[in-house]
């Protein structure tokens, strides 16, 4: 095969006698020769990612305990269906009822956004191609499946639309910041509202900061902000923003994990407060 390519190139890159079609790889059959615990990382990734998917799906189906005034679970924000306990924009979309499932949880109206953002994220792609697809499970360890098409076919080719999901993810940061601001407004004993800070407020702020860190360290963000420019000296402001994003881009995987935990824990916290299992400590002014 290589021999043929060489011929097409008019032989101008003569190697030390180029390898012909029959040229064989080193006769080593082992799938890998690594001696370290290469399997530990993909295994841990698998366990944590799978746990999150299971928990978030379960939480989305609950359609309850996602609001404990003034905290709204990030899984249900923005809450935009008529049946919302706490409607973000006054509640507009009609409720949908399906056979078997019953009333559609408002979580499903919004979860596709962040879900697709993470699913098409360059870091998560690496994580799940290694831990779920096992292509490859680790470096210099053989792919488990024989055939391979990478990201050239449906559905994986769609991940090239990651940028679109990033635009959506930015909107979510706006909404969640609004939620976090509302988390300073507590219902006053005699009606109306009063300012205050609770543990839930802090939980929601940590969450939105980590999510923002994840969203703005994104590779697509880096490209949109300035990565597309070839002559930085002619576009100083884009160069400045690009440099900033480039500084946090190496932390993208860290933000990916921390924000994954924070979003799950924020939901769990609000759920437990709303169920009355734990009491939210708060100070009001």
């Amino acid at each position: 095969m290589i021999g043929k390519i060489l011929k097409d190139q008019h032989g101008h890159v003569a190697g030390a006698v180029p390898a012909g079609p029959g040229a064989a790889r080193p006769p080593i059959t082992a799938a890998h020769l690594r001696k370290d615990a290469w399997w530990a990382l993909p295994l841990a990734t698998f366990v944590f990612l799978a746990s999150f998917v299971v928990y978030s799906t379960w939480a989305a189906f609950q359609n309850a305990h996602y609001f404990a005034a003034p905290y709204l679970s990030p899984f249900y924000s923005p809450c935009i269906s008529a049946s919302c306990v706490h409607a973000t924009f006054g509640g507009g979309l009609p409720d949908l009822t399906f056979p078997v499932i019953g009333l559609l949880s408002p979580a499903f109206l919004v979860l596709w956004g962040p879900g697709l953002f993470r699913l098409s994220c360059y870091y998560y792609r690496k994580a799940y191609y290694r831990s779920f697809w096992l292509a490859p499970p680790a470096c210099a360890v053989k792919d488990v499946k024989e055939g391979y098409t990478g990201e050239t076919r449906f559905p994986l080719v769609l991940w090239n639309f990651h940028r679109w999901t990033w635009y959506v993810a930015v909107l979510f940061i706006v909404v969640l910041t609004w939620d976090a601001l509302l988390a300073f407004r507590f219902p006053a004993p005699g009606g109306g509202a009063t300012w205050g800070v609770g543990v839930g407020t802090i939980v929601m702020w940590i969450n939105v900061i980590l999510l923002a860190g994840y969203t703005f360290s994104c590779h697509s963000c880096r490209h949109v902000c300035g990565g597309h420019v070839n002559e930085f000296s002619k576009a100083p402001s884009r160069y400045g923003i690009w440099s900033l994003v480039s500084r946090i881009n190496p932390q993208h995987p860290t933000f990916a994990w921390l924000s994954l935990f924070s979003v799950g824990l924020a939901d769990l916290y609000i759920r437990l407060v709303s169920m009355g299992i734990i009491r939210d400590l708060r100070i009001t002014f």
């Binding site: 190139q9 390898a19 790889r25």
Partner: peptide, 22 residues
């Protein structure tokens, strides 16, 4: 291991020179 072997630790890496030219 990705390239054809010549002998012992030496492999034929001409794949890379072909790609370079393209």
């Amino acid at each position: 291991r990705t390239f054809p072997i010549i002998r012992d630790l030496v492999t034929d890496v001409s794949y890379n020179y072909v790609k370079a030219k393209q």
